[in-house]
Amino acid sequence: MVTEERRHEALAALGILDTAPEDRFDRITRLAQRLFEVPMVSVTLLDGERQWRKSHRGLTTEAPRESAFCDLTARQDAPLVIDDAAADDRFRDNPFVVGDPHLRFYAGEPLRAAGGEPVGTLCVLDTVPHSLSAEQLQLLRDLADWVQAELDRDAQSDGVAVVQTALLPRRKPTARGFEIAAASEAGAAVAGDFYDWYDDGDGFCVTVGDVVGRGMSAAIVAASVRAALRSTTPYAGIERAMEAVSANLEDDLGRLGVLATAFHARVAPSGTVEYVDAGHGLAFVVAAAGGVRRLEPGLPLGTSSTDRVAATERLAPGDSLLCLSDGAFDALGGERGLLRAEAIVRGSATPAGAVSRIVSAARAAAPLSEALAIVVRRGD
């Protein structure tokens, strides 16, 4: 049995308590809120007498730990699902049920430190009862695995830099009528971000990927994703290529303890962008006339999904497709930094200037985990 002292030491060693919000976690809670259709979602860590929330929707950053459902989830080190707390003799008098936030439904998955100590949860909550299907329970486990991978992200990065360098494309697409540029910079720890681009018939493809996990395992998965998308897309198309990659990786990702997201798009000469976003969530259209449109993400690679389907956008003359890594997005200010990103892209004479300014802005932020930016601009 894990003692409270050991749990506290393991949590402190993560170095995440009382840190600023990060979009790599906020992306997960936003997605969970949409998929489960609940008003409240939280990545909760249990510190002393408090619940501290690294990312949350519809809740406060801190709350008392005593009597918390998340505390019970961590203590039993197993999933906890309460369909209707008011109808359950164990919980009907719980202070979080009879008082704010008047919970009726709770489903939580435990999160663990590097040594396996349960230190928190990913949970979804509501003020009305819910009943989850087997598929939804698996989805919650998948999302918790994504959070777990992010918590483990900085571990065992040796050797990844060599593979990352080899993954960078050596020449730009022909891309008549378009300008394209990318820039990246690693932080103190090597991240699993990669990008790719190449000609595909009369158009071209752009890929941004993020593999979170442990060292060389993450690098191997990144190389596999890149190679599979490159080889499959010309014959199968965007959607079928992404589904094939996801299905082939499902077992490997679980065994290796990593998680992968990707944005994969084909840009046609007409400006039509066909894309599939597998959990990346950081691709945008920056309109020449003003405004930013976020391209909707689906579930990460390796998870069974009918939600991961191809969608289309259109780049009008002067519009830009902007793809960021989560490190670059965080450094720009997260959601609040979108206006800054828009100003940089629209205010730069070339995509090369835009990506350089984005990475420079990220470099000025501390600490820098990594930064990657791609801009595709349709000519006037």
Rank of each mutant, 00 (worst) to 15 (best):
T350K: 12
G254S: 05
L132H: 11
A161V: 15
L45R: 05
F36L: 13
E274Y: 05
R7C: 10
G237L: 07
D380A: 12
D152G: 12
P297G: 13
V309M: 10
C323V: 15
A161F: 11
G187E: 05
F105S: 04
L132R: 09
E150F: 03
S356F: 12
V41C: 14
E49D: 15
H280G: 02
R240F: 04
V273L: 11
V286A: 05
P269F: 13
G120Q: 05
E109N: 07
R240N: 12
R294N: 13
D84L: 00
A13R: 15
I220H: 10
V97L: 00
L249A: 04
G279H: 00
P64M: 08
T233H: 11
A365T: 09
P21D: 11
A222Y: 05
I82Q: 06
V124G: 05
P269R: 03
R65H: 09
S217K: 07
G271S: 12
D200W: 04
P367Y: 09
T165N: 04
R363C: 02
A32I: 13
L299G: 01
Y106V: 06
E62V: 13
R104H: 10
F36Q: 14
R34L: 08
A288F: 05
D23Q: 12
L132C: 10
N248A: 14
R141V: 06
W146A: 10
M1Y: 06
V258E: 00
R255A: 07
E22I: 04
R53A: 09
R293Q: 15
L315T: 03
D154M: 10
P101A: 06
I344M: 14
V286I: 14
F178M: 02
R255S: 04
D126L: 01
D126I: 05
V160E: 10
R24C: 09
I16T: 13
W52F: 11
Q138N: 07
L167H: 00
H280Q: 12
V98G: 02
L253P: 02
A316W: 01
A186C: 10
H130I: 08
V190S: 08
F178D: 02
V43S: 01
A262Y: 07
L299T: 01
P64W: 07
I28L: 12
L31P: 01
L332N: 06
L46V: 01
